[in-house]
Write a protein that binds this DNA or RNA. Structure first.
Lengths: 224, 224
DNA sequence: ACCTGAACACCGTTCAAGT
DNA sequence: ACCTGAACACCGTTCAAGT
């Protein structure tokens, strides 16, 4: 849907650049070479333009990242949710994760602003709605959303950071070295579990965590 | 505990710089002006040295950040934990948060490597230990730690990112603008709760979330 | 209105040289 | 061994000028 040329301009050349074209080019860079490679300069080059031309269409790099999320969320269909309240909450929370799970650049968005792209807000809405249907008060529902969001954001942060690091270096990470030098008498639990540690951070493990969290959030005696 | 000058060197001048001095100067910058201001160049200037002199003592900036965490954790006393298992797990998880809650630079560490500073590993050890005392299998304990860690990391990420953004700009954030333009019929839950949204992300709300998560992790029927 | 070019004020890090 | 200086290869963004 190019807005460009849709209506003939009153004067001057037609715009060579457009928000859509910029976002599409940015997505292509991220897809091909990773977020690290996304810079205003590289983006301009790919568009055969200059860095400053971009600033005529987007306010700054933060807005560009948000537009990237925006475009991604728009392409993600809002799923049908189960009617049973707990299952509904679980499914809605899962969607939050799934929508973001293939956005390696989400880490940059998290570090720049909240998850407030208009086209992504239905995800929040669905979680709040499901939480209320579970019998939570509005306050409790907001709290529940927050807990779910922190868990999800943390998981994404750790996941993408690790895979980014792995991509760039073949050398063992700080973690590997630290674990190797561990004293078993001082850290009996850690050393005995260090084998199990790496064990794939599977999709399944994320879901199990979500299920546990929701059980806790819906349980009434949390105060003990 | 300056290692500098402790043993007279065999030859050459005494080192002007030391790891300790570098880390201390870095901590001072972060304390005074925030992480954004911490660069190898600024650090060198504060030490009346050159950027490249630093690389003789630390491998790169990532290691410097890890050393910062290292120094911070060393100054944090390992607390006595309750013996009742659930309370113990709760307290250990709380410690994880509390140790990091006054490290605004932790976001940079998270994005660069895992939380594996040797002097901070007792925090992980204590959580695993408490989880096992609660009756979890080693696998379950590792899983529980992970859920707690993701939740905590997410909370810290969001918290520090927000306060950083607030520090730099008086202008309303993307979030404010997005919420203001919200359509109540499309997002009934969101709009009706937008007032409650800002409601202080208190220390208390973090603890309530932790309690709920632990309830869920220790509950047996999470599969329903 | 839209775009360009040069410049500002930075980064982390490598390399070759000095003492 | 420890440090310096110059340089490399970048950043995001501002400003003044062009059409």
């Amino acid at each position: 849907m190019p807005t460009e040329d849709a209506v003939p301009r009153r004067a001057g050349r037609p715009a060579r650049l457009s928000k859509e074209a910029i976002v599409a080019a940015a997505a292509a860079i991220v897809e091909a070479d990773g977020v690290e490679q996304l810079s205003m300069r590289r983006l301009a080059k790919d568009l055969s333009s200059t860095p400053m031309a971009l600033y005529h269409h987007v306010e700054d790099k933060d807005e560009l990242l948000l537009l990237l999320l925006e475009a991604h969320a728009r392409g993600f269909p809002r799923p049908e949710l189960p009617t049973e309240p707990r299952q509904r909450l679980l499914a809605a929370a899962r969607t939050l994760h799934d929508v973001l799970a293939d956005c390696p650049w989400i880490v940059e968005v998290l570090a720049s602003d909240d998850l407030v792209a208009p086209s992504a807000l239905w995800i929040v809405e669905d979680i709040l709605d499901a939480a209320v249907r579970c019998g939570l008060t509005p306050e409790e529902a907001v709290h529940a959303y927050r807990v779910i969001w922190y868990y999800t954001a943390g998981e994404l942060l750790v996941h993408f950071t690790r895979s980014r690091r792995r991509a760039e270096a073949g050398t063992p990470t700080h973690r590997d070295r630290a674990f190797a030098a561990l004293d078993p008498t001082a850290y009996p639990r850690l050393t005995s579990m260090s084998g199990r540690w790496v064990a794939l951070t599977t999709e399944d493990s994320h879901r199990r965590g979500l299920a546990a969290i929701i059980t806790g959030l819906l349980s009434t005696d949390t105060t003990r």
